[in-house]
Design a protein around this nucleic acid. Structure first.
Lengths: 190, 190
DNA sequence: TGGGCTTTCCTAACATGATTAGGCAACCTG
DNA sequence: CAGGTTGCCTAATCATGTTAGGAAAGCCCA
Protein backbone atom coordinates (compact mmCIF):
# COMPACT_ATOMS: atom_id res chain seq x y z
CA UNK A 1 0.00 0.00 0.00
CA UNK A 2 2.12 2.80 -1.28
CA UNK A 3 1.26 6.04 0.37
CA UNK A 4 0.08 8.80 -1.90
CA UNK A 5 0.81 11.65 0.47
CA UNK A 6 -2.62 13.16 0.97
CA UNK A 7 -2.79 16.48 2.74
CA UNK A 8 -5.61 18.90 3.41
CA UNK A 9 -3.93 21.52 1.25
CA UNK A 10 -3.33 19.06 -1.58
CA UNK A 11 -6.93 17.93 -1.53
CA UNK A 12 -8.16 21.49 -1.73
CA UNK A 13 -5.83 22.32 -4.62
CA UNK A 14 -6.89 19.20 -6.49
CA UNK A 15 -10.46 20.07 -5.64
CA UNK A 16 -10.06 23.46 -7.28
CA UNK A 17 -8.71 21.88 -10.45
CA UNK A 18 -11.39 19.24 -10.44
CA UNK A 19 -14.06 21.89 -10.06
CA UNK A 20 -12.77 23.68 -13.16
CA UNK A 21 -12.85 20.44 -15.10
CA UNK A 22 -16.15 18.88 -14.12
CA UNK A 23 -17.91 21.57 -12.09
CA UNK A 24 -17.95 22.52 -8.44
CA UNK A 25 -21.16 20.60 -7.83
CA UNK A 26 -19.57 17.36 -8.84
CA UNK A 27 -16.38 17.91 -6.89
CA UNK A 28 -17.06 15.35 -4.19
CA UNK A 29 -14.91 13.30 -1.82
CA UNK A 30 -15.57 10.25 -3.98
CA UNK A 31 -14.38 12.02 -7.12
CA UNK A 32 -11.22 13.30 -5.44
CA UNK A 33 -10.48 9.86 -4.04
CA UNK A 34 -10.74 8.45 -7.54
CA UNK A 35 -8.28 11.01 -8.82
CA UNK A 36 -5.78 10.27 -6.08
CA UNK A 37 -6.20 6.53 -6.58
CA UNK A 38 -7.34 6.12 -3.03
CA UNK A 39 -10.42 4.91 -1.19
CA UNK A 40 -12.98 7.56 -0.30
CA UNK A 41 -12.74 6.85 3.41
CA UNK A 42 -9.07 7.80 3.34
CA UNK A 43 -9.91 11.44 2.78
CA UNK A 44 -11.61 11.69 6.12
CA UNK A 45 -8.32 11.99 7.99
CA UNK A 46 -7.68 15.21 6.10
CA UNK A 47 -11.07 16.85 5.70
CA UNK A 48 -13.95 16.67 8.12
CA UNK A 49 -16.62 15.95 5.52
CA UNK A 50 -17.86 16.97 2.09
CA UNK A 51 -19.11 20.35 3.27
CA UNK A 52 -15.76 21.08 4.87
CA UNK A 53 -13.99 20.21 1.64
CA UNK A 54 -16.16 22.56 -0.36
CA UNK A 55 -15.66 25.33 2.14
CA UNK A 56 -11.92 24.83 1.82
CA UNK A 57 -12.09 25.10 -1.96
CA UNK A 58 -14.24 28.22 -1.66
CA UNK A 59 -11.75 29.92 0.66
CA UNK A 60 -8.87 28.88 -1.57
CA UNK A 61 -10.57 30.44 -4.60
CA UNK A 62 -11.46 33.60 -2.71
CA UNK A 63 -7.85 34.05 -1.63
CA UNK A 64 -6.55 33.40 -5.12
CA UNK A 65 -8.97 35.91 -6.56
CA UNK A 66 -8.05 38.48 -3.93
CA UNK A 67 -4.37 37.97 -4.76
CA UNK A 68 -4.96 38.66 -8.42
CA UNK A 69 -7.18 41.62 -7.74
CA UNK A 70 -4.78 43.22 -5.33
CA UNK A 71 -1.94 42.86 -7.81
CA UNK A 72 -4.04 44.35 -10.60
CA UNK A 73 -5.16 47.33 -8.55
CA UNK A 74 -1.71 48.19 -7.20
CA UNK A 75 -0.44 51.36 -8.80
CA UNK A 76 -3.71 52.25 -10.48
CA UNK A 77 -6.44 54.67 -9.55
CA UNK A 78 -9.82 55.89 -10.71
CA UNK A 79 -11.20 54.37 -13.87
CA UNK A 80 -8.00 52.43 -14.49
CA UNK A 81 -8.30 50.70 -11.17
CA UNK A 82 -12.00 50.06 -11.64
CA UNK A 83 -11.48 48.40 -15.00
CA UNK A 84 -8.50 46.37 -13.86
CA UNK A 85 -10.40 45.11 -10.83
CA UNK A 86 -13.49 44.27 -12.83
CA UNK A 87 -11.51 42.41 -15.46
CA UNK A 88 -9.67 40.33 -12.91
CA UNK A 89 -12.99 39.26 -11.54
CA UNK A 90 -14.49 38.42 -14.91
CA UNK A 91 -11.39 36.77 -16.33
CA UNK A 92 -11.05 34.59 -13.28
CA UNK A 93 -14.60 33.37 -13.73
CA UNK A 94 -14.13 32.61 -17.42
CA UNK A 95 -10.77 30.93 -16.86
CA UNK A 96 -11.77 29.02 -13.74
CA UNK A 97 -15.51 28.43 -13.80
CA UNK A 98 -15.39 25.82 -11.06
CA UNK A 99 -13.40 27.99 -8.70
CA UNK A 100 -15.69 30.89 -9.46
CA UNK A 101 -18.68 28.75 -8.60
CA UNK A 102 -16.86 27.86 -5.39
CA UNK A 103 -16.61 31.53 -4.42
CA UNK A 104 -20.40 31.52 -4.28
CA UNK A 105 -20.61 28.59 -1.93
CA UNK A 106 -22.48 29.78 1.16
CA UNK A 107 -19.98 30.09 4.00
CA UNK A 108 -20.90 29.81 7.64
CA UNK A 109 -20.08 32.80 9.81
CA UNK A 110 -16.64 31.67 10.97
CA UNK A 111 -15.43 30.79 7.49
CA UNK A 112 -16.77 34.03 6.08
CA UNK A 113 -14.99 36.11 8.71
CA UNK A 114 -11.68 34.64 7.60
CA UNK A 115 -9.37 36.85 5.56
CA UNK A 116 -10.68 36.74 2.03
CA UNK A 117 -13.98 38.49 2.55
CA UNK A 118 -12.32 41.35 4.33
CA UNK A 119 -9.68 41.69 1.59
CA UNK A 120 -12.33 41.96 -1.10
CA UNK A 121 -14.17 44.68 0.77
CA UNK A 122 -10.95 46.62 1.33
CA UNK A 123 -10.12 46.53 -2.35
CA UNK A 124 -13.52 47.82 -3.37
CA UNK A 125 -13.05 50.71 -1.01
CA UNK A 126 -9.56 51.34 -2.34
CA UNK A 127 -10.94 51.67 -5.83
CA UNK A 128 -13.61 54.07 -4.73
CA UNK A 129 -10.99 56.27 -3.12
CA UNK A 130 -10.42 57.81 -6.54
CA UNK A 131 -14.05 58.86 -6.72
CA UNK A 132 -14.19 60.73 -3.43
CA UNK A 133 -17.49 59.42 -2.13
CA UNK A 134 -18.36 60.22 1.49
CA UNK A 135 -20.08 57.71 3.73
CA UNK A 136 -22.66 56.29 3.60
CA UNK A 137 -22.56 56.72 -0.16
CA UNK A 138 -19.28 54.88 -0.39
CA UNK A 139 -20.79 51.79 1.18
CA UNK A 140 -23.75 51.92 -1.16
CA UNK A 141 -21.36 52.21 -4.09
CA UNK A 142 -19.28 49.27 -2.83
CA UNK A 143 -22.43 47.20 -2.75
CA UNK A 144 -23.37 48.30 -6.24
CA UNK A 145 -19.98 47.33 -7.63
CA UNK A 146 -20.12 43.94 -5.95
CA UNK A 147 -23.62 43.42 -7.30
CA UNK A 148 -22.75 44.34 -10.87
CA UNK A 149 -19.61 42.22 -11.03
CA UNK A 150 -21.12 39.25 -9.30
CA UNK A 151 -24.37 39.54 -11.23
CA UNK A 152 -22.87 40.11 -14.65
CA UNK A 153 -20.36 37.32 -14.41
CA UNK A 154 -22.93 35.00 -12.92
CA UNK A 155 -25.34 35.60 -15.78
CA UNK A 156 -22.58 35.37 -18.35
CA UNK A 157 -21.21 32.07 -17.09
CA UNK A 158 -24.76 30.73 -16.93
CA UNK A 159 -25.00 31.43 -20.64
CA UNK A 160 -27.34 34.36 -20.28
CA UNK A 161 -25.70 36.53 -22.94
CA UNK A 162 -24.50 33.95 -25.38
CA UNK A 163 -27.54 33.70 -27.63
CA UNK A 164 -28.04 37.30 -28.56
CA UNK A 165 -26.16 40.19 -30.11
CA UNK A 166 -24.16 42.24 -29.32
CA UNK A 167 -21.38 40.17 -27.81
CA UNK A 168 -20.75 40.05 -24.10
CA UNK A 169 -17.42 41.84 -24.34
CA UNK A 170 -19.08 44.92 -25.77
CA UNK A 171 -21.66 45.05 -23.03
CA UNK A 172 -18.97 44.59 -20.41
CA UNK A 173 -16.92 47.47 -21.77
CA UNK A 174 -19.86 49.79 -22.02
CA UNK A 175 -21.13 48.87 -18.57
CA UNK A 176 -17.76 49.66 -17.04
CA UNK A 177 -17.77 53.02 -18.79
CA UNK A 178 -21.24 53.67 -17.48
CA UNK A 179 -20.23 52.69 -13.95
CA UNK A 180 -17.26 55.03 -14.09
CA UNK A 181 -19.51 57.86 -15.20
CA UNK A 182 -21.99 57.03 -12.47
CA UNK A 183 -19.36 57.01 -9.75
CA UNK A 184 -18.07 60.39 -10.87
CA UNK A 185 -21.54 61.91 -10.63
CA UNK A 186 -23.04 59.81 -7.86
CA UNK A 187 -26.34 61.38 -6.78
CA UNK A 188 -26.00 62.19 -3.08
CA UNK A 189 -29.60 63.18 -2.42
CA UNK A 190 -32.66 61.13 -3.17
CA UNK B 1 -53.70 1.87 -0.59
CA UNK B 2 -55.54 5.14 -0.73
CA UNK B 3 -54.44 7.19 -3.69
CA UNK B 4 -53.04 10.58 -2.93
CA UNK B 5 -53.58 12.09 -6.35
CA UNK B 6 -50.07 12.93 -7.43
CA UNK B 7 -49.67 15.08 -10.51
CA UNK B 8 -46.70 16.71 -12.15
CA UNK B 9 -48.14 20.14 -11.46
CA UNK B 10 -48.86 19.26 -7.83
CA UNK B 11 -45.37 17.97 -7.30
CA UNK B 12 -43.87 21.13 -8.72
CA UNK B 13 -46.07 23.35 -6.55
CA UNK B 14 -45.21 21.35 -3.46
CA UNK B 15 -41.59 21.48 -4.55
CA UNK B 16 -41.72 25.27 -4.64
CA UNK B 17 -43.12 25.39 -1.12
CA UNK B 18 -40.64 22.85 0.12
CA UNK B 19 -37.80 24.84 -1.38
CA UNK B 20 -38.89 27.92 0.54
CA UNK B 21 -39.04 25.92 3.76
CA UNK B 22 -35.87 23.86 3.65
CA UNK B 23 -33.95 25.20 0.64
CA UNK B 24 -33.92 24.38 -3.03
CA UNK B 25 -30.85 22.15 -2.65
CA UNK B 26 -32.66 19.86 -0.29
CA UNK B 27 -35.84 19.70 -2.34
CA UNK B 28 -35.41 16.13 -3.59
CA UNK B 29 -37.74 13.41 -4.81
CA UNK B 30 -37.28 11.64 -1.49
CA UNK B 31 -38.28 14.73 0.48
CA UNK B 32 -41.36 15.33 -1.65
CA UNK B 33 -42.38 11.69 -1.34
CA UNK B 34 -42.15 12.04 2.44
CA UNK B 35 -44.39 15.08 2.35
CA UNK B 36 -47.01 13.36 0.21
CA UNK B 37 -46.86 10.24 2.39
CA UNK B 38 -45.81 8.18 -0.58
CA UNK B 39 -42.87 6.03 -1.62
CA UNK B 40 -40.15 7.77 -3.59
CA UNK B 41 -40.50 5.45 -6.55
CA UNK B 42 -44.08 6.61 -7.00
CA UNK B 43 -42.97 10.03 -8.15
CA UNK B 44 -41.32 8.60 -11.21
CA UNK B 45 -44.60 8.26 -13.07
CA UNK B 46 -44.98 12.04 -12.86
CA UNK B 47 -41.46 13.44 -13.20
CA UNK B 48 -38.67 11.97 -15.24
CA UNK B 49 -35.98 12.31 -12.58
CA UNK B 50 -34.60 14.66 -9.95
CA UNK B 51 -33.14 17.04 -12.48
CA UNK B 52 -36.44 17.23 -14.30
CA UNK B 53 -38.22 18.04 -11.05
CA UNK B 54 -35.84 20.88 -10.29
CA UNK B 55 -36.17 22.25 -13.80
CA UNK B 56 -39.93 22.21 -13.33
CA UNK B 57 -39.67 24.16 -10.10
CA UNK B 58 -37.31 26.64 -11.73
CA UNK B 59 -39.71 27.28 -14.62
CA UNK B 60 -42.61 27.58 -12.20
CA UNK B 61 -40.75 30.21 -10.18
CA UNK B 62 -39.66 32.11 -13.29
CA UNK B 63 -43.26 32.29 -14.50
CA UNK B 64 -44.54 33.36 -11.12
CA UNK B 65 -41.92 36.08 -10.93
CA UNK B 66 -42.70 37.25 -14.45
CA UNK B 67 -46.40 37.42 -13.54
CA UNK B 68 -45.70 39.64 -10.58
CA UNK B 69 -43.30 41.82 -12.47
CA UNK B 70 -45.62 42.31 -15.38
CA UNK B 71 -48.42 43.32 -13.06
CA UNK B 72 -46.17 45.77 -11.20
CA UNK B 73 -44.89 47.40 -14.34
CA UNK B 74 -48.28 47.80 -15.99
CA UNK B 75 -49.31 51.46 -16.03
CA UNK B 76 -45.96 52.76 -14.85
CA UNK B 77 -43.08 54.33 -16.73
CA UNK B 78 -39.60 55.69 -16.19
CA UNK B 79 -38.29 55.67 -12.65
CA UNK B 80 -41.61 54.44 -11.27
CA UNK B 81 -41.47 51.38 -13.48
CA UNK B 82 -37.82 50.77 -12.69
CA UNK B 83 -38.42 50.84 -8.96
CA UNK B 84 -41.55 48.72 -9.12
CA UNK B 85 -39.79 46.11 -11.22
CA UNK B 86 -36.73 46.03 -9.01
CA UNK B 87 -38.80 45.70 -5.86
CA UNK B 88 -40.81 42.83 -7.24
CA UNK B 89 -37.60 41.03 -7.92
CA UNK B 90 -36.10 41.69 -4.50
CA UNK B 91 -39.30 41.09 -2.55
CA UNK B 92 -39.82 37.80 -4.30
CA UNK B 93 -36.36 36.66 -3.29
CA UNK B 94 -36.84 37.68 0.34
CA UNK B 95 -40.30 36.19 0.54
CA UNK B 96 -39.52 33.00 -1.37
CA UNK B 97 -35.83 32.24 -0.97
CA UNK B 98 -36.17 28.69 -2.23
CA UNK B 99 -38.04 29.68 -5.35
CA UNK B 100 -35.54 32.45 -5.95
CA UNK B 101 -32.72 29.93 -5.69
CA UNK B 102 -34.65 27.82 -8.17
CA UNK B 103 -34.66 30.66 -10.70
CA UNK B 104 -30.87 30.32 -10.75
CA UNK B 105 -30.92 26.65 -11.53
CA UNK B 106 -29.03 26.16 -14.79
CA UNK B 107 -31.54 25.32 -17.52
CA UNK B 108 -30.71 23.37 -20.61
CA UNK B 109 -31.33 25.10 -23.91
CA UNK B 110 -34.87 23.83 -24.50
CA UNK B 111 -36.09 24.71 -21.02
CA UNK B 112 -34.48 28.12 -21.20
CA UNK B 113 -36.14 28.93 -24.51
CA UNK B 114 -39.54 28.37 -22.91
CA UNK B 115 -41.64 31.42 -22.15
CA UNK B 116 -40.30 32.83 -18.94
CA UNK B 117 -36.87 33.93 -20.11
CA UNK B 118 -38.39 35.81 -23.02
CA UNK B 119 -40.94 37.50 -20.80
CA UNK B 120 -38.24 38.79 -18.46
CA UNK B 121 -36.25 40.22 -21.32
CA UNK B 122 -39.32 41.93 -22.75
CA UNK B 123 -40.10 43.57 -19.44
CA UNK B 124 -36.59 44.94 -19.04
CA UNK B 125 -36.90 46.49 -22.47
CA UNK B 126 -40.32 47.89 -21.62
CA UNK B 127 -38.87 49.66 -18.61
CA UNK B 128 -36.06 51.12 -20.63
CA UNK B 129 -38.53 52.53 -23.11
CA UNK B 130 -38.95 55.47 -20.77
CA UNK B 131 -35.25 56.25 -21.00
CA UNK B 132 -35.04 56.42 -24.78
CA UNK B 133 -31.86 54.46 -25.30
CA UNK B 134 -31.00 53.44 -28.84
CA UNK B 135 -29.48 50.08 -29.71
CA UNK B 136 -27.00 48.72 -28.93
CA UNK B 137 -27.02 50.80 -25.75
CA UNK B 138 -30.40 49.49 -24.79
CA UNK B 139 -29.15 45.93 -24.78
CA UNK B 140 -26.15 46.89 -22.68
CA UNK B 141 -28.48 48.62 -20.24
CA UNK B 142 -30.77 45.60 -20.10
CA UNK B 143 -27.79 43.49 -19.15
CA UNK B 144 -26.72 45.98 -16.53
CA UNK B 145 -30.13 45.97 -14.92
CA UNK B 146 -30.24 42.20 -14.88
CA UNK B 147 -26.79 42.08 -13.38
CA UNK B 148 -27.53 44.57 -10.63
CA UNK B 149 -30.80 42.98 -9.58
CA UNK B 150 -29.53 39.45 -9.76
CA UNK B 151 -26.24 40.36 -8.12
CA UNK B 152 -27.63 42.50 -5.34
CA UNK B 153 -30.34 40.10 -4.36
CA UNK B 154 -27.96 37.17 -4.59
CA UNK B 155 -25.47 38.81 -2.28
CA UNK B 156 -28.20 39.96 0.07
CA UNK B 157 -29.81 36.55 0.43
CA UNK B 158 -26.37 35.05 0.93
CA UNK B 159 -26.03 37.33 3.95
CA UNK B 160 -23.50 39.60 2.33
CA UNK B 161 -24.92 42.83 3.70
CA UNK B 162 -26.26 41.72 7.04
CA UNK B 163 -23.21 42.28 9.21
CA UNK B 164 -22.43 45.89 8.42
CA UNK B 165 -24.06 49.31 8.49
CA UNK B 166 -25.93 50.89 6.82
CA UNK B 167 -28.89 48.57 6.35
CA UNK B 168 -29.58 46.84 3.10
CA UNK B 169 -32.77 48.77 2.44
CA UNK B 170 -30.89 52.05 2.37
CA UNK B 171 -28.35 50.74 -0.10
CA UNK B 172 -31.10 49.37 -2.28
CA UNK B 173 -32.94 52.67 -2.40
CA UNK B 174 -29.83 54.64 -3.17
CA UNK B 175 -28.68 52.18 -5.81
CA UNK B 176 -32.02 52.43 -7.59
CA UNK B 177 -31.75 56.21 -7.55
CA UNK B 178 -28.26 55.97 -8.95
CA UNK B 179 -29.39 53.57 -11.68
CA UNK B 180 -32.19 55.92 -12.64
CA UNK B 181 -29.73 58.79 -12.90
CA UNK B 182 -27.36 56.64 -14.90
CA UNK B 183 -30.03 55.59 -17.37
CA UNK B 184 -31.07 59.19 -17.92
CA UNK B 185 -27.51 60.22 -18.76
CA UNK B 186 -26.20 56.99 -20.27
CA UNK B 187 -22.81 57.68 -21.89
CA UNK B 188 -23.15 56.77 -25.55
CA UNK B 189 -19.50 57.11 -26.53
CA UNK B 190 -16.58 55.40 -24.89
C1' DT C 1 20.13 -1.63 12.69
C1' DG C 2 16.08 -2.55 14.65
C1' DG C 3 11.96 -1.63 18.12
C1' DG C 4 8.28 1.25 18.91
C1' DC C 5 5.17 5.19 17.87
C1' DT C 6 2.48 7.75 14.80
C1' DT C 7 0.29 8.49 10.82
C1' DT C 8 -1.79 6.98 6.58
C1' DC C 9 -4.50 4.39 4.18
C1' DC C 10 -7.52 0.24 4.04
C1' DT C 11 -11.56 -2.91 4.95
C1' DA C 12 -16.07 -3.28 6.57
C1' DA C 13 -20.35 -1.57 7.47
C1' DC C 14 -24.29 1.38 7.37
C1' DA C 15 -27.42 5.39 6.01
C1' DT C 16 -29.53 8.00 2.53
C1' DG C 17 -30.76 9.15 -2.10
C1' DA C 18 -31.80 8.16 -7.17
C1' DT C 19 -33.56 5.06 -10.26
C1' DT C 20 -35.75 0.92 -12.77
C1' DA C 21 -38.77 -3.17 -13.32
C1' DG C 22 -42.69 -5.43 -12.44
C1' DG C 23 -47.10 -6.34 -9.60
C1' DC C 24 -51.61 -5.51 -7.51
C1' DA C 25 -55.35 -2.88 -6.49
C1' DA C 26 -58.14 1.30 -7.13
C1' DC C 27 -60.65 3.97 -10.26
C1' DC C 28 -63.11 4.96 -14.69
C1' DT C 29 -65.70 3.46 -18.71
C1' DG C 30 -69.08 1.09 -20.83
C1' DC D 1 -70.38 -4.95 -12.73
C1' DA D 2 -66.60 -6.60 -16.09
C1' DG D 3 -62.39 -4.86 -18.26
C1' DG D 4 -58.89 -1.89 -18.98
C1' DT D 5 -55.96 1.81 -17.39
C1' DT D 6 -53.48 4.12 -14.16
C1' DG D 7 -51.36 4.99 -9.66
C1' DC D 8 -48.85 3.60 -6.14
C1' DC D 9 -46.20 -0.21 -4.06
C1' DT D 10 -42.46 -3.81 -3.43
C1' DA D 11 -38.06 -5.18 -4.48
C1' DA D 12 -33.68 -4.53 -6.10
C1' DT D 13 -29.55 -2.00 -7.67
C1' DC D 14 -26.17 1.53 -7.58
C1' DA D 15 -23.74 5.83 -6.05
C1' DT D 16 -22.34 8.78 -2.43
C1' DG D 17 -21.23 10.14 2.35
C1' DT D 18 -19.67 8.78 6.73
C1' DT D 19 -17.85 6.16 10.89
C1' DA D 20 -15.05 2.63 13.31
C1' DG D 21 -11.34 -0.08 13.74
C1' DG D 22 -7.13 -2.65 11.64
C1' DA D 23 -2.62 -3.12 9.35
C1' DA D 24 1.35 -1.50 7.63
C1' DA D 25 4.48 2.32 6.16
C1' DG D 26 7.53 5.67 7.59
C1' DC D 27 9.95 8.22 11.36
C1' DC D 28 12.58 8.62 15.81
C1' DC D 29 15.82 7.17 18.77
C1' DA D 30 18.55 3.81 21.24
Amino acid sequence: MARVGLTTEGLIRAGAETADEIGFERTTPTELARRFGVKTASLYSHVKNAHDLKTGIALFALEELADRASEAVAGRAGKDALIAFANVYRDYALEHPGRFAATRFPLDAEAAASGAGVRHAQMSRAILRGYHLAEPHQTHAVRLLGSVFSGYVGLETAGGFSHSAPGSQESWTEILNALDALLRTWPTSS
